[in-house]
Design a protein around this nucleic acid. Structure first.
Lengths: 248, 248
DNA sequence: CAGTGGTCTAGACCACGGT
DNA sequence: CCGTGGTCTAGACCACTGT
């Protein structure tokens, strides 16, 4: 006789909920549509609000939902592909570049960056901050670090000039260095308070951390740490266009 | 008179906790050491266990902690760098390859993969599963999809042969196709139940999803979807070794 | 078996966005 | 001002790991 399945593992409620909600998103909701609020959803599924929130959290992590305090929970559009490796593999700030310079300064780098640059922790480095937008929404914030010794032609930034102007001055000077190659690493992180603000997210929200090392003369001449919104971005690498394929 | 700072924004407790714990990890604990259990930590900081857990969750997300049910919370070693782009940019399964074939079959691909391959949703594709280890720990699980029509020399896998043998047969046949290029995308996801088991994690834990498209003859001949543990891995790309630098 | 982290509940109050 | 999601509490029970 047909025994029913063993049901060896009782699936957690929030996991089951996530499946139900995910299916509902596919079949009953349009992108941008606003879901019922959390209290009502929880009541409708017969669970505590905290349990429902656990399911929503996962769906948001996967880029299916977007939650905004004071507004509501909406169905997210598909993730946007953002090209990480520049076509020309050149210095940042080139012509075809959707980054926006914000400002620049001269200060000691974060403790995690100094060893990558091979400088003493207290040594001053130029720090350029930029942001990147896609479809009108901010997707990334970046800090670029260049030891002052690498850019002898650039003086300490003039506080009188505007932030973007200071940033552009450093990027311009960079372009004179002979870039030999670059090197990237991607890992998961969580947004610091300042980054979160730029990305229009809450502190601690998941981000993809892209660390780029720029190689000059066999050494690391600059390091960029870019913080991409993990919920809305898919980072793309490689040469699809070279063979005439649309981006993945 | 010196007014104290305005304290405009009351920092959430779990955020402050995370900072305290993070500092303690740096100064008072060694890698692998077991922390006090959650109930005691919560009591020690004077917060509810749920609040403490929120802080631990973030530290785990950042790869600083590792929690195992029935065991405890330990201080995690630094993330391991895993090279994602092969040196030769060749087909998978080459000589210098730390992937382990698991098994292979012939079935319809997942709904998300069929459009990437440009095949009808029901069309059978070879599916090769592999896992990757680093320092004796599993770091990734991968499914490689190749439309049956691309590999006319390969018959339906023989159920009598071992799983790894079936997988190697497909990988061997792949090597005869002239690979033109490849293309990658990285995004955040959460582990499905089967992947979680292979990665020794719980379902839903955060993973880095790497989608590779293999280009042959101007079209996509194969697609690989690899799932890397986000807590323990840093994905590396590029050519650091080409210029004689150690990996980031 | 005892002890760990994982799930779940039913409340409360807060910070923020729009009206 | 109201309604939203974000934070927090104080409990309870469950699933897993080791001994």
């Amino acid at each position: 006789m047909g025994t029913t399945q063993l049901e060896t593992v009782p699936e957690p409620k929030y996991w089951h909920l996530k499946t139900l909600l995910g299916d509902a998103l596919d079949s009953e909701f349009a992108v941008g549509e606003i879901l019922p609020n959390e209290r009502e959803l929880a009541a409708r599924f017969g669970v505590a609000r905290a349990t429902l929130r656990q399911a929503l959290e996962q769906l948001e992590l996967e880029g299916r939902l977007q939650r905004r305090r004071g507004v509501g929970t909406t169905v997210a559009p598909p993730r946007v592909g953002v090209a990480v490796a520049d076509a020309g593999h050149g210095w940042p700030g080139g012509a075809e570049d959707d980054w926006q310079p914000v400002d620049a300064g001269l200060a000691a780098p974060p403790a995690a960056v100094a060893p990558l640059l091979g400088v003493a922790p207290g040594e001053p480095v130029h720090t350029v901050r930029r942001t990147r937008s896609s479809h009108g929404r901010p997707v990334a914030a970046e800090s670029l670090y260049v030891p002052a010794a690498r850019l002898p032609g650039v003086e300490a930034p003039d506080p009188a000039s505007s932030g973007p102007a200071r940033a552009r001055a450093v990027l311009r000077a960079l372009r004179d260095l002979p870039l030999e190659g670059q090197d990237r690493a991607v890992e998961l992180g969580s947004a610091r308070a300042d980054e979160a603000k730029q990305l229009e997210r809450l502190p601690g929200s998941p981000v993809l951390l892209v660390t780029t090392r720029y190689i000059v003369d066999g050494g690391v001449a600059a390091v960029a740490v870019a913080t991409y919104r993990a919920d809305t971005c898919r980072l793309t690498f490689g040469d699809a266009d070279r063979v005439g394929l649309p981006a993945a």
